[in-house]
């Protein structure tokens, strides 16, 4: 039996669509709830980000609880930046006990890129080790070898960076994540489908599902900012020029067009198993993207 609805979808052969919602900076969760309600039936699962870019926010676990409450399927993003191995395992137990059974295992951005630069970075674990921690817990013990009362079961994923400017070390890491038990991968933002094609030629030898990360850029300025400040993002100059060519009030529209174009090609050419749409603060436009990419419809 599948460990989650999303895991069931993962092996259904359907083209998968996931997205993500960034929690608020503050205790007012109304906008996040609105975004969850807007998206929960239109995608296969919603990621809740974990202090994305090391900016302190409402926690991913709290966001995932809300997704559950609202009737959606959550993917808990867990980074190793802020929790040691005790805290990681504890959060995973809490997640499982509340029906949050999908986990995306990430190392986490450096605290130096965020808004609490003086914080102590934890990194007791890395993403590969986190995948192993989960698989160990599923065998009935914590990583200290002590028996767990109640064994959690998860569907676990990780990230991969097909557009990295030096791909070989990234592929070694990808192999290790597969060996550690990752079932699905969300890629870093894809802008150039040639790199995705090359990566899929490599990745198709493994029994894992690949969701292409699609970042919706709202302007050329945003693209340049992300290039300089957001780890793991390389927006090519051609994409920046395309965004810049649009009139001022049509730039987000242009960003949506670019995203829709990528999604359509990926689906038509059956390049990978699905897409993960990252609207970075523009969650409200995700339904339009799905509509335009002919992926709209109730998915639960």
């Amino acid at each position: 039996m599948a460990n989650s609805l999303f895991e069931e979808k993962l092996y259904s052969g359907e083209f998968l669509v996931t997205t993500e919602v960034g929690p608020p900076k503050g205790a007012d969760i109304s906008e996040m709830v609105h975004h969850i309600d807007l998206l929960k039936d239109k995608v296969d699962a919603i990621n809740i980000t974990d202090h994305q870019s090391s900016v302190m926010r409402f926690p991913s676990l709290g966001g995932c609880l809300l997704v559950k409450e609202r009737g959606g399927e959550p993917i808990l993003q867990v980074t190793c930046r802020d929790r040691n191995r005790l805290a990681l395992q504890a959060d995973l137990l809490l997640a499982y006990s509340r029906g949050i059974n999908n986990v995306l295992c990430l190392t986490g951005d450096s605290v130096d890129v965020g808004d609490h630069k003086e914080a102590k970075p934890v990194f007791d674990s890395d993403s590969v080790q986190l995948l192993k921690i989960i698989r160990t817990m599923e065998s009935g013990t914590d990583i200290g070898g002590n028996e767990l009362k109640g064994t959690p079961k998860f569907c676990i994923g990780a990230s991969v960076h097909p557009e990295a400017d030096f791909i070989e070390p990234q592929l070694i890491k990808f192999d290790k994540k597969v060996a550690a038990g990752a079932q699905f991968f969300q890629t870093q933002g894809i802008f150039d489908l040639r790199s995705l094609r090359r990566f899929m030629q490599y990745a198709s030898q493994f029994d894992v599902k690949i969701l292409a990360g699609i970042i919706v850029l709202a302007s050329a300025g945003m693209a340049r900012y992300m290039n300089n400040n957001v780890p793991g993002i390389i927006v090519p100059q051609a994409t920046i020029d395309e965004l810049a060519s649009a009139e001022k009030d049509k730039r987000l529209q242009k960003g949506i067009e670019i995203a829709v174009g990528l999604i359509k090609t990926i689906k038509e050419e059956n390049l990978c198993h699905g897409v993960h749409i990252m609207a970075v603060g523009n969650e409200r436009i995700v339904p339009d993207i799905l509509e335009a990419a002919q992926l709209a419809g109730v998915r639960h």
Partner: peptide, 21 residues
């Protein structure tokens, strides 16, 4: 490595440099 990780690079490496600096 700014994160002191053991299993290879994170995705933040660019031009051979570190995401933190």
């Amino acid at each position: 490595c700014t994160k002191g990780i053991l299993n290879g690079p994170c995705a933040g490496t660019k031009n051979g440099k570190c995401e933190a600096n």
